[in-house]
Design a protein around this nucleic acid. Structure first.
Lengths: 199, 199
DNA sequence: TGTCATGTTTGCACCGTAGGCAAGTTCTGC
DNA sequence: GCAGAACTTGCCTACGGTGCAAACATGACA
């Protein structure tokens, strides 16, 4: 039994701290929120706050959950084309984001406005990028790893494009995978543009 | 006359602070360097340090100089293919990095090791990315801007690939532009992989 | 149920980062 | 040389973040 009372409590406390942090940011603006205030609202001591999170940002920007192992395995050992197999991977990721849809909506502006949050968010995007390009490299170990990073960063950007349009499009994220692939193909077209101008 | 004594002094002070910061990091490790020590070594008060830089990281990670206007104009109004015109832009950028070659070598490890520096560096990369994708969008205003971000991020990654191999390859950066384009084409190949497996 | 080991929270003390303010110093234009 | 702008500095305050040891809660087991 791994889900002991202790662990559940910890989960709970962690969630309470995060919630308090986000609410306070929303009410007072990120700059004006202190770790002391967050601790107070979530009913723990400031010292405990720092047992859970290394800093204020970390309480607000959660790192995205890792990709499920089976989905990764399917991609890495996939027998279709790169894009075909990539689709399931991206859908899995978008699906997980769906749960956080409301939080994403709330945090988007906060992130836009505060360099510190932006940095924390960047760091979490960088992890995603590394994870993805790792999968790519495992799938085709002979391809230049830098190329895999390039491709992964393009995919991450494409996903970002979908997320950023959350306010203009209510469609569930996963139903919008196509946009990623349309964009990848458009990108290819730009790069492969024939030597003679097309008017 | 814009290059007044005052401005030169400011430049000078700024450079002295940066130098002191980098030297100290090299001698004592980033974590063990305080803004107080940096200020002391560069002969200013701690208060003045904060007049110049918002924080320790900013003194260490300089943002790359902007692209020269004429190079940008040539790219934006260029009449060749996308890749052909892109070349001059990338060469200009690599050329500017050449001047910092030694600093880059010194700072690389520091950045790898310290999340705070990494974050500062990411932020400066993000500016580069935004600048580049802005140029791309101005050149072809009808193309989906998200695609331009994807492409720009791939190019930035490719440039990063060159910089990261600074220790394995002494060739001047600008002489290695080709690697960027080879990699862009490889990336296109991966994405455009024909539907039937190629063994 | 009692008790012991382990894990978690807390208070406290301490250092470093960062900014506001006002007084002092240096530079610029006239 | 002088008035005013720009810059530097010291002082004061607040927040961020960590180490430590005491207090407390929990799980295991008799």
């Amino acid at each position: 039994m791994t889900t002991t009372l202790r662990e559940r409590r910890k989960q709970q406390t962690s969630r309470e701290i995060r919630l308090a942090a986000i609410e306070l940011c929303f009410e007072e603006g990120f700059e004006n929120v202190t770790t002391e205030a967050i601790s107070a609202r979530s009913g723990v001591s400031q010292r405990t706050f720092f047992n859970y999170f290394p800093n204020k940002e970390a309480a607000i920007i959660a790192r995205p959950p890792p990709f499920p192992d089976d989905v990764v395995a399917d991609f890495v050992n996939g027998s279709g084309t790169f894009l075909e197999d990539l689709e399931a991977l991206v859908i899995a990721h978008l699906g997980q984001l769906e749960e956080d849809r409301e939080i994403i909506r709330t945090l988007r502006n906060l992130i836009e406005m505060h360099p510190v949050l932006r940095a924390a968010h960047d760091a979490s995007m960088r992890l995603l990028l590394a994870e993805l390009s790792g999968f790519f490299a495992r799938r085709s170990p002979d391809t230049d790893p830098v190329v895999m990073e390039m491709l992964a960063s393009a995919v991450v950007m494409a996903i970002g494009g979908i997320i950023r349009s959350i306010d203009q499009d209510e469609t569930p994220f996963a139903a919008r995978v196509d946009e990623v692939f349309v964009r990848l193909r458009t990108m290819v077209d730009v790069v492969s543009q024939p030597p003679v101008a097309m008017g």
